[in-house]
């Protein structure tokens, strides 16, 4: 009896109107189970994040924030990821446009290839990259030294693992631009390139930008591929790992919190960017 009463009150708080239309007990319990299972997932994501932030004292955080090494590594991480995003955008946006507009043989294979970096273990991706930009590689021999241990090398590793986010977001953004608008522009005398720069790109820009921010954030958080290419100079994710290994949890925690806060702020900007149009944010 009491349990039923509990179910009633829980239901009125949790269950939406549509679910209420068929009001029998079985459905009510079903909804409660759905809600509880769903809540556990959300809790699973936010609990560790909140916990680490609570567990870290302001003093520790301040200390980390003025630590020269930490500042250097954050700068390096942001810049390397930014460079990776910018250069990838230069070639990735045209590729996205091609994929969105042209039907050609092997298009679906190409789409699968672009998603490859997501499914390959990132440490393995780092090793694979070594064979291309390491000291013994063609590029390494050409330059006299490899790109390992350099900021450029870090950028390359970040670009490799985060490129799919940019290309996929940009492709979806271009697909959402009605092709008819491009056709009209052509009949009005605009060349294909002028049409691209005055119609397609401005209309897809918001989606492309959110793809770029997503790629940037993904680059910042990359550990596996980066640590293979460059242990030094140290990016922040590598530094969190090194400090945890060498000095233990409490020493690594404050840097980890800083990194989390940076990534969360980028994420919030991304969501706001999508919201300003008054739509549900798309899962770019």
């Amino acid at each position: 009896m009491r349990l039923n009463h509990f179910a009633d009150s829980l239901e009125s708080k949790l269950v939406t109107k549509e679910f209420n239309i068929i009001n029998n007990q079985r459905i009510r319990w079903f909804n409660i189970i759905l809600t509880l299972l769903g809540s556990s997932v959300v809790l699973f994501i936010i609990a560790p994040l909140i916990n680490i932030i609570i567990a870290t004292s302001i003093t520790d955080l301040k200390e980390a924030a003025i630590d020269h090494q930490v500042i250097q590594s954050i700068k390096l991480t942001l810049m390397a990821a930014f460079l990776a995003t910018l250069t990838s955008a230069l070639a990735g946006i045209p590729l996205a446009y091609l994929l969105a507009r042209k039907k050609f043989f092997g298009r679906s294979i190409l789409l699968a290839i672009i998603d490859l970096p997501i499914i390959i273990p990132h440490s393995a991706a780092g090793i694979a990259l070594l064979t291309v930009i390491g000291r013994q590689s063609f590029i390494g021999r050409f330059l006299g030294k490899g790109l390992t241990g350099t900021a450029i090398g870090i950028s390359v590793a970040m670009a490799f693992v985060s490129l799919p986010f940019l290309v996929n977001a940009a492709r979806q953004a271009f697909e959402a631009v009605p092709e008819k608008l491009e056709k009209v522009a052509r009949t009005l005398g605009a060349s294909p390139s002028r049409t691209f720069f005055t119609i397609s790109l401005p209309l897809a820009w918001r989606g492309i930008l959110s793809g770029m921010i997503l790629m940037w954030a993904r680059g910042i958080s990359e550990f596996g591929a980066v640590v293979i290419i460059a242990y030094h100079p140290m990016t922040t994710p590598v530094m969190v790992f090194q400090r945890f290994n060498d000095y233990g949890l409490s020493y690594a925690r404050s840097v980890a919190v800083l990194l989390i806060l940076i990534c969360v702020s980028i994420f919030v900007i991304l969501r706001l960017l999508n919201y300003t149009k008054g739509q549900e944010p798309t899962n770019a």
Partner: peptide
């Protein structure tokens, strides 16, 4: 198409949504 000088108007108008009417007409 850009060399032909034939202009099209469609059933759904296909105006450029990111441009003002003035910019649309003078495109």
């Amino acid at each position: 198409p850009e060399a032909r000088g034939f202009a099209v108007a469609y059933q759904d108008y296909a105006l450029f949504p990111h441009l003002t009417i003035r910019q649309n007409i003078t495109y």
